[in-house]
């Protein structure tokens, strides 16, 4: 379980780096277009693809990091519990035990 979580965190860092890189590439490209005085009409396909791939990487990492869903049916919950756990009730605890009468016998 922990292996999956740490792998997911590692993937999350990769996704963050690719997302950051695509953001910086977009910024660079826009400032280049401004420097050569062209009108920015379309982004290069590499940046778009990198951005979309980083979304997929992030999705996989988040799925790995998030804990598993738990079955909510009481039926499934009860199969995991032992009868001692279900049956324990404070109402039937006995605090008077036989030691008191035994002591009078011994004396």
């Amino acid at each position: 379980m922990t292996v999956i979580v740490s792998l997911g965190k590692f993937l999350g860092w990769i996704g963050f780096l690719t997302l950051f890189h695509s953001a910086y590439s977009t910024y660079e490209h826009l400032s280049y277009l401004k420097a050569v005085e062209k009108i920015p009409n379309e982004m290069p396909i590499e940046i778009t693809v990198e951005c979309l791939i980083s979304i997929v990487i992030f999705a996989i990492s988040i799925i790995m990091v998030a804990g598993p869903l738990k079955p909510i049916l009481m039926k499934d919950e009860m199969t995991k519990k032992t009868i001692d756990k279900v049956d324990i009730r404070p109402n039937f605890n006995t605090f008077n035990h036989r030691c008191r009468s035994m002591r009078s016998l011994v004396n």
């Binding site: 996704g15 997302l19 695509s22 953001a23 982004m43 778009t48 951005c51 980083s54 979304i55 992030f58």
Partner: peptide, 9 residues
């Protein structure tokens, strides 16, 4: 994350 991507795109 998808919001960030939409902003970058």
């Amino acid at each position: 994350i998808t919001g960030s991507a939409a902003g970058i795109l």
